[in-house]
């Protein structure tokens, strides 16, 4: 390494540069925070039911099998757009009934097929979970995923 770069100079570059990049990063995330609240997500529709649905999603750690917006485990289908995949845009009632019926029918018990546990959710909880998935599908994700398969 060049003799011109002394250890104390390298140290100062490290600490100074880190502070510089952290400030930019915090600034951009602050801007993104506001962007999410005002532009990309629908805060008006973030109802108590959607919030309750998010907690149900967490309580049963759905994310350790499924992905949501591509993040999570890769053992089960993407659910960020499951509402769209089930035709919720055209027929909201039909999609809701299908999603609820799907969860009620688990586990399938079919040999050689991945099993989803039975979480014994009440009808209200099922509605809340569906509300959460519907709300999530309406986040502006720069057109991700590429198609309905998720």
């Amino acid at each position: 390494m060049s003799e011109r770069l002394t250890k104390s100079a390298a140290r100062n570059i490290f600490y100074g540069g880190t502070i510089f990049f952290l400030v930019i990063f915090f600034g951009l995330t602050l801007h993104s925070h506001n962007y999410m609240l005002n532009e990309s997500t629908n805060m008006d529709e973030l109802t108590p039911s959607v919030v309750a649905g998010k907690h149900i999603w967490e309580r049963h750690s759905c994310v350790n099998c499924h992905t949501i917006l591509g993040e999570g485990a890769y053992f089960a289908p993407e659910l960020g757009n499951v509402w769209v995949r089930y035709g919720g845009k055209e027929d909201p009632e039909g999609a809701r009934d299908m999603l609820k019926a799907w969860m009620a029918a688990q586990p399938s018990g079919i040999e050689g097929r991945r099993q989803m546990p039975q979480f014994n959710l009440t009808d209200q909880e099922l509605d809340e979970l569906v509300d959460f998935l519907k709300w999530t599908s309406e986040i502006d994700t720069q057109n991700w995923p590429p198609n309905e398969a998720g």
């Binding site: 880190t18 993104s32 962007y35 532009e39 986040i139």
Partner: peptide, 18 residues
């Protein structure tokens, strides 16, 4: 850190971020 801090951007692609 000069690459990694702003490199967080590769996780902010499809989650509702600008």
């Amino acid at each position: 850190l000069f690459s990694g801090i702003l490199g967080t951007g590769h996780h902010y692609l499809w989650i509702g971020t600008p």
